[in-house]
């Protein structure tokens, strides 16, 4: 059992208050996943050349500013670094490959959680309520967010094994369920030169879909192939820069509920995680059908 949550704001007020709506959702879904949690937040894109690198290290005393200063010297740019607890977001106009290689050489124990112009990812071990407090999720804003509360069943409990998983740029995925063929997917992708960071089944789904998108598929087309390739039980919630996408497998035995109003789209494993939302009694509430792709675009006006 795990919990998934998603939120897409349809107007400025809900962009500003996004974190405040998401935290009770994560806390409530802590009942379904108390061992670790994560949140991916999307905001307006950075300029074309700039990337946000979300970093995590399992060391509360880690000298983030030293890492930042080293990188500034290497890249020859001014330092832009936001530090919260074990997490830092580093902004830099550099290719992701260059930064990744530098990080691996100089700070091999620092995890790169996400790369992109709009994504920022936080994940850690602990109860979702505690993680939300630790990283101050309640104060965060953004156009949309994807969160997860984990009850590990198939691989270790660690920050790296927590969701969301990311691959490529500005793409993330959370999963409730279990895949039965992650290793065959993984072997297929590894032959294509794709590398994995964990032995988690969800990472296989995430990298499979990102590989299809790099090959030219839209996320929807990639998911149609995923319905054939991914064997197992899953509710998958994904986000890119401009949309939130939800699917359930053919058996649909992993839950999901959607509530939509003029102000927001909210998704959760269970309705009780949505019950606190403003206007929920007037929301259109429905359960997504098996093997149907549900997609919501970020409005240009927000």
């Amino acid at each position: 059992m795990c919990g998934i949550v998603g939120f897409l704001a349809k107007n400025r007020a809900f962009v500003e208050s996004l974190g405040g709506h998401v935290v009770p959702m994560l806390t409530c879904m802590g009942d379904r996943g108390p061992d670790s949690a994560g949140l991916a937040l999307f905001s307006r894109s950075l300029p074309e050349m700039v990337r946000r690198f979300s970093l995590y290290v399992d060391d509360r005393e880690f000298p983030w500013t030293e890492l930042g200063a080293q990188w500034s010297l290497e890249a020859g740019t001014a330092l832009e670094l936001d530090i919260i607890e074990n997490h830092a977001a580093l902004l830099s106009a550099v290719s992701p490959d260059q930064f990744r290689a530098w990080l691996k050489t100089h700070y091999p124990h620092v995890h790169l959680l996400s790369v992109g112009r709009s994504i920022d990812v936080y994940k850690d071990e602990g109860h979702p309520e505690e993680i939300s407090r630790r990283y101050r999720f309640g104060k965060m804003h953004g156009t949309h967010a994807v969160g997860h509360t984990r009850m590990a069943t198939e691989s270790a409990v660690s920050p790296a094994h927590a969701h969301p998983f990311t691959a490529g740029e500005d793409f993330c995925l959370v999963h409730n369920g279990s895949l039965s063929n992650p290793y065959s997917i993984r072997r297929k992708l590894e032959r294509l030169g794709i590398t994995f960071e964990t032995d988690n089944d969800t990472e296989a789904a995430c990298r499979f879909l990102e590989w299809r998108m790099r090959e030219g598929d839209t996320l929807e087309e990639a998911l149609q192939k995923g319905f054939i390739e991914l064997d197992g039980f899953y509710t998958l919630l994904m986000a890119t820069t401009d949309k939130l996408v939800l699917v359930r497998d053919a058996f649909a035995c992993k839950p999901a509920v959607v509530a939509e109003t003029d102000d927001y789209v909210a998704i959760s494993s269970e309705y009780r995680a949505l019950a606190h939302l403003p206007g929920i009694n007037q929301a259109r509430i429905f359960e997504p059908l098996p093997e149907r792709i549900y997609s919501w675009n970020v409005l240009q006006s927000v």
Binding site: E270, Y271, R272, A273, L274, A275, H276
Partner: peptide, 9 residues
């Protein structure tokens, strides 16, 4: 009358 079930199980 049971009020405010709020999705509880």
């Amino acid at each position: 009358a049971i009020l405010n079930p709020n999705g509880q199980h």
